[in-house]
Simulated assay, not measured.
Amino acid sequence: MTETEDVREGRTLDAGALRALAHPLRVQLFDILSQYGPQTASSLAERTGESSGATSYHLRALAKQDLIREIPDRGSARERWWERADKSVSFDSPEALASPAVRSATQLIMNEFLGRRHQQLMRHVSEGIAAPDKEDDASMISTANIHLTREQAADLIERLSAVVSDVVAGARGHEEDPDRSPFTVRVDVFALPEDGDGR
């Protein structure tokens, strides 16, 4: 499982980083920094409904594992700015996942991360239905059901990853452009269960 909205030099998270990230608020902070760019503890407190003391504490914990970093030339001693570290991350280290505790931490991270993304998707759908006249031609929700061999699935994943990587590389460095706004890209490719049960 790879978290790839920032497709850059990749990092497979070790057990220490996975344990540090395995907290609902830390997943939320990490994801907000990924999606919306640099933030302060105060701005993150406003977004999450937590206190700035709590967000500051969890930001420092994430920074200790190099998951995020402080922006030294921005802000002041009282207002520190934080950003996501400059790498994509993968949660599937075979060594780390050999530990039941780390597997449990990884499951918590993925549940929180995907739950948050699903809530965003459902909000987009609800708002689109509530305001059908709203112009929004820059979105797509599409699914496809196909029968593939393992080799074809691997090829599809490689090709989709290349497209996302190319677009991310072209957009990098333009985050402050006022004509740009945050988008999320989600690509899911996986084999369906044999019994047809989605649970």
Rank of each mutant, 00 (worst) to 15 (best):
G198A: 10
G115E: 02
S139N: 04
E158T: 12
F113N: 12
T143I: 15
Y57F: 09
Q35H: 07
P94V: 10
R159A: 14
I146Y: 05
V185P: 10
A98F: 01
V185W: 11
N145G: 14
A15H: 03
A22Q: 07
E194T: 13
P100S: 11
T55E: 00
A96E: 05
R117G: 14
W81R: 04
A61T: 13
E5P: 15
A171H: 10
R47P: 02
T2E: 02
R159M: 05
T106N: 12
L21F: 10
P24E: 06
T4D: 09
V167A: 13
L25F: 05
M110I: 15
T184W: 09
A162F: 00
I146F: 07
K134W: 03
P182S: 09
G75N: 08
V102K: 09
G49W: 03
A154W: 03
A138V: 02
Q119A: 15
E3F: 13
L156P: 06
T149A: 10
W82G: 05
L21C: 13
T48R: 03
L121M: 15
P94S: 12
T143A: 13
D92A: 13
D197G: 14
S42G: 10
R180Y: 05
Q39V: 01
V164E: 13
D188M: 07
I32A: 14
K64M: 12
R103D: 09
A96V: 08
L97C: 07
R199S: 05
H118C: 14
Q107N: 11
D195L: 01
L44I: 06
D14H: 04
P38V: 02
P94F: 12
R47E: 02
S181I: 06
D197L: 09
E46H: 11
Q65D: 10
S34E: 11
A169K: 11
A77Y: 10
G37P: 00
P132S: 05
L21W: 11
G49K: 04
P24T: 07
S104R: 15
F91P: 03
E9A: 12
S90D: 12
S34G: 14
T48E: 05
Q152F: 03
D179F: 09
Q35P: 03
T184V: 11
S76L: 08
G128F: 02
H147W: 06
I157P: 01
L97H: 04
S161M: 13
F30N: 04
G173Y: 02
P94D: 13
T12M: 06
V7M: 02
A41Y: 00
K87M: 14
P72L: 00
R116Y: 01
V163T: 06
P132T: 05
I68K: 01
F91E: 08
L25D: 09
S99T: 03
L67K: 04
A61L: 11
S52M: 09
S52G: 00
R11Y: 04
L114K: 11
S161K: 13
R84P: 10
F30T: 03
I71K: 01
L114F: 14
A153I: 09
S88I: 01
L192S: 15
G173E: 05
E46Q: 15
S161P: 04
L25A: 15
E5Y: 10
Q120H: 08
R47M: 11
P178C: 14
T106L: 01
